[in-house]
Design a protein around this nucleic acid. Sequence first.
DNA 1: TCTGAATATTTCATGTTGTCAAGCAAGCGG
DNA 2: CCGCTTGCTTGACAACATGAAATATTCAGA
Lengths: 144, 144
Amino acid sequence: MATSRTDPLTLEVVELIGSVVARYYEEYEQAAAEHSLTGAQARVLRLLSLEPLPMRRIARKLKCEPSNVTGIVDRLEARGLVERTPDPSDRRVKLAAPTRSGLATAARLRDSLDFAREPLAELSAQERRTLRDLLRRMVGDDDA
Amino acid sequence: MATSRTDPLTLEVVELIGSVVARYYEEYEQAAAEHSLTGAQARVLRLLSLEPLPMRRIARKLKCEPSNVTGIVDRLEARGLVERTPDPSDRRVKLAAPTRSGLATAARLRDSLDFAREPLAELSAQERRTLRDLLRRMVGDDDA
DNA sequence: TCTGAATATTTCATGTTGTCAAGCAAGCGG
DNA sequence: CCGCTTGCTTGACAACATGAAATATTCAGA
């Protein structure tokens, strides 16, 4: 493998990615907190704002146990941001869907996620295209 | 501001960064778990492997309350990975330093953090340099 | 059709992380 | 010496996370 662990260039890129991750994560939590949400609640609400989902699919997306999702959706439901509705095609399943208020909160949350937008302003359109292409190749064709 | 929220290029880059963050975070937790550590414990151990630090400085680095650090260091200390030693120059301060075993664990942890190394193999040296330069400018001159 | 395995969700017990308020010990400026 | 600040810990509490067990439903096969 050409990419040795001790290659200084690679190490610096890894380090930089670590910085980006730390910063993004922190700002995400902060944006969530401004709407009185925890990070986990914000992630679930964002997911559901794209599409209502059964509990187990939320767990798969979050890569956590379904029993954990129960509590998070409980808290979102208690705040009127999310509703559980039965799935007509399978009575075992409960679909979680955002309420009108939940959708509004999700939209405001999206707007306050300035992280990558602001530092991206440093880059020209051409540079952003370059960055996009490099990131695309790094991330690969993962479909989560 | 030229970088409108609805600019599709910027949106895609933000989305990609989100993917990178999710993946990095997940792999970090997983690498930590392979050494029976939580993510927070791994982060503290990594910090201390660079340099012993007083509790309050760990809290600053982790951006959390000092009272939280007490518990994390307690658990690392209970496993013999970290020691608290008094600071001779200020008897209020306790320095947390890795033990020999803690240093070894930190090194193994570092080795298993393949994340950015592996997808980075997709990129040529020139491309990695380009990526490094773009990321540097995004991250800015933050000294944490 | 009946039975048994598999699936979807919840509940419970437990541990870690996080906050905040309060407390204690040690430094520091008057 | 006194009072203020600083560094750390403790205690109470909430959220998140896991794993095991309980419940309800579906589904495949005898």
